[in-house]
Simulated assay, not measured.
Amino acid sequence: MDKIIEELPAKAKEKWVENKKYFTKLKRKQRKRLDYMMNEIHEEEFEHTDCLDCANCCKTTSPIFTEKDISRISKYLKMKEGQFVNQYLQRDEDDFMVLKSVPCTFLDKDNSCVIYDIRPKACSEYPHTNRKKFIQLTDLTLKNTEICPAVFNMVETLKSKLPL
């Protein structure tokens, strides 16, 4: 898995223009069954992909923490919200609350999440490939092809199942 993760940014960069053009065409066509198809591709991919083997998302990026996330997690950690924010979070250039550092503070040595049951909403929804209105998330999906091998594979599968 380490080799796949190491090669992923270059592979994603190599496919970036092709994928960008694909998603641009896809947006113009407004495929009615796209959400259903992406959900199917997502389920198929995660039948043989185990995030605990990779955890590259947790090692290289930060989720956005909503106010609800901050409240829930700080309560779980028996901390005041302000203390939690000061210790773990900062505002990014888009004014979102994100982790001060990566890898994620809550990532354990075995790639498990020590706050998994109460993790941020962004983590529970990652990689966002099975969400409704997928067409609105193509820029994020394109970015995630550089981070998540499963997303890279799903985009390649989508292009083969739905050529434009």
Rank of each mutant, 00 (worst) to 15 (best):
I4G: 04
K80D: 14
R72I: 15
T105I: 07
F134S: 12
L107K: 10
C148G: 01
F65N: 01
C123A: 10
T141W: 03
L99F: 15
T138S: 06
K27C: 12
P120Y: 07
S71A: 12
L137G: 10
C51M: 03
L52T: 15
R31Y: 06
R33Y: 03
T157C: 06
E45R: 11
I4F: 04
E93Q: 13
M154Y: 08
K109P: 09
E146P: 08
A12W: 02
D108W: 06
S62W: 10
C148D: 00
K15M: 12
P120S: 05
K59E: 13
I135A: 00
C104L: 05
Q136W: 05
V17F: 00
K13Y: 02
M79S: 04
N56W: 05
K21R: 11
C54Y: 13
T138G: 04
E156G: 10
K132E: 12
I4Q: 07
K78T: 10
E40D: 15
K13L: 04
F84R: 09
D35A: 04
L34T: 03
Q30T: 14
T157R: 14
V151L: 01
E7P: 05
V151G: 00
I73R: 04
T49H: 15
A10M: 07
D94R: 11
F96I: 10
A55E: 01
P127F: 02
C113W: 07
E14C: 06
K25C: 02
T145N: 00
C113T: 09
T105P: 06
E45T: 06
I147D: 04
D117R: 11
I73C: 01
V17P: 05
Y126P: 03
E47L: 11
K11D: 02
A55I: 15
K161L: 07
V85H: 09
K29F: 09
K133R: 14
K132V: 14
M38S: 05
L137C: 05
K27N: 03
M37R: 15
T138W: 02
W16F: 11
T49E: 09
V102D: 13
T61A: 10
R28N: 13
L99Y: 14
V151Y: 02
C58V: 11
T60P: 06
P149E: 02
T49N: 02
M79F: 05
S74M: 03
K3A: 10
R91Q: 14
Q136R: 12
L142S: 00
D2G: 12
I147N: 08
M38K: 03
I147R: 01
Q87H: 13
K100A: 05
Y22K: 05
Q83D: 14
Y36F: 10
K13R: 08
D35M: 03
M38F: 04
N19K: 02
P127K: 08
Q87R: 13
K21P: 03
I4A: 08
T129R: 07
N153C: 08
D110Q: 08
K32C: 08
N153D: 04
A150S: 08
N111K: 06
L158E: 01
I73E: 00
L8I: 04
K29Y: 08
A122M: 08
D35I: 14
S124K: 11
T129Q: 12
D69I: 01
T138D: 02
F46S: 04
E67L: 14
L8W: 00
